[in-house]
């Protein structure tokens, strides 16, 4: 009986230890369960927080891209505007370039000769081809007699134009004032009155008027004046005047020179005979 008691005690002790082990295991299992649950919770939280941050990032990126698109659209519109401006400017420069070419050619031709008749022919050519006039005349001032003398005409007989007083009528006014006359409309009169042109420009050397160009009719396709026409009128007013004046003087002096040379030859021949 005495031997049984220690065995029972030991068994009881073992049982207790076992029970403690059981309790510990149970508590460990419980703790494990709790931790698993917590891990699952945290994982879910983490997953949720990642999605939100991604969405946030995406939203931010979309906002930035939208801002970039808007800025690019603005830049595109700006470049398009600039392009249109350049295209417009290009057309203007090209037009200006053409006008300058016209003026250069006209000026070059006017000063290409000292022959009076040839200069008059060139003035007529410029007026027909570059301005588009159909009927017109060039009248020069005869200062000795205070009259305007027709020296060349196109589309009408030069002899049908009367000599005119320089101080009366529309043409006389252009001579005395030194300012061009432009009628309000480019009227095509059926009957041409040489004293009433639709455009009349003075031929001037500085402020001195040496004559006029009187326009009576323009080509059928010429319906209005462009800026280059006014430039050409100005060019003709100055350059044509100088060219006509200098070529006339040159031709006269050539003629006088040959007359004087003739006289000198006569004088030289006389003593020998």
């Amino acid at each position: 009986m005495k031997e049984e008691i220690p065995i029972l005690r030991k068994a009881e002790e073992f049982l207790q230890i076992f029970r403690k082990g059981e309790e510990f295991t149970k508590s460990l299992l419980k703790e494990n369960e709790r931790l698993r649950f917590r891990v699952a919770e945290l994982e879910e939280e983490l997953a949720q927080s990642t999605n939100e941050s991604r969405i946030k990032n995406y939203k931010e990126r979309i906002r930035m891209l939208e801002a970039e698109i808007a800025s690019m659209k603005d830049r595109f519109n700006e470049v398009e505007r600039e392009n249109k401006d350049f295209a417009k400017r290009y057309i203007e420069v090209e037009e200006e370039n053409n006008n300058l070419a016209n003026l250069y050619v006209a000026s070059y031709q006017l000063h290409s000769t000292l022959d009076y008749e040839e200069v008059l022919k060139i003035v007529l050519e410029i007026i027909i081809n570059l301005i588009g006039a159909e009927v017109f005349a060039i009248l020069l001032v005869d200062e000795k007699n205070n009259r305007l003398i027709p020296v060349a005409a196109e589309g009408m007989d030069k002899d049908s134009i009367p000599e005119m007083e320089i101080d009366s009528g529309l043409i006389g006014e252009v001579v005395t004032e030194g300012e061009g006359y432009f009628s309000d409309e480019m009227v095509r009169l059926k009957e041409i009155d040489p004293r009433n042109p639709i455009v009349c420009i003075p031929l001037k050397i500085k402020e001195h008027v040496i004559g006029v160009i009187a326009f009576y009719s323009f080509l059928i396709q010429k319906t209005s004046f462009s800026s280059i026409d006014y430039e050409l009128f100005n060019l003709l007013a100055g350059h044509a005047a100088t060219a006509i004046f200098s070529s006339r003087l040159y031709t006269q002096s050539e003629r006088k020179l040959s007359t004087i040379q003739g006289f000198l030859e006569l004088l030289r021949d006389k003593p020998g005979k």
Binding site: A101, Y104, V105, Q109, S112, I122, E125, N129, L130
Partner: peptide, 13 residues
């Protein structure tokens, strides 16, 4: 036939 027009066209070309 016009020298002015010939020069103008040649210039343009």
């Amino acid at each position: 036939d016009s020298p002015t027009m010939r020069q103008l066209i040649s210039f343009a070309m």
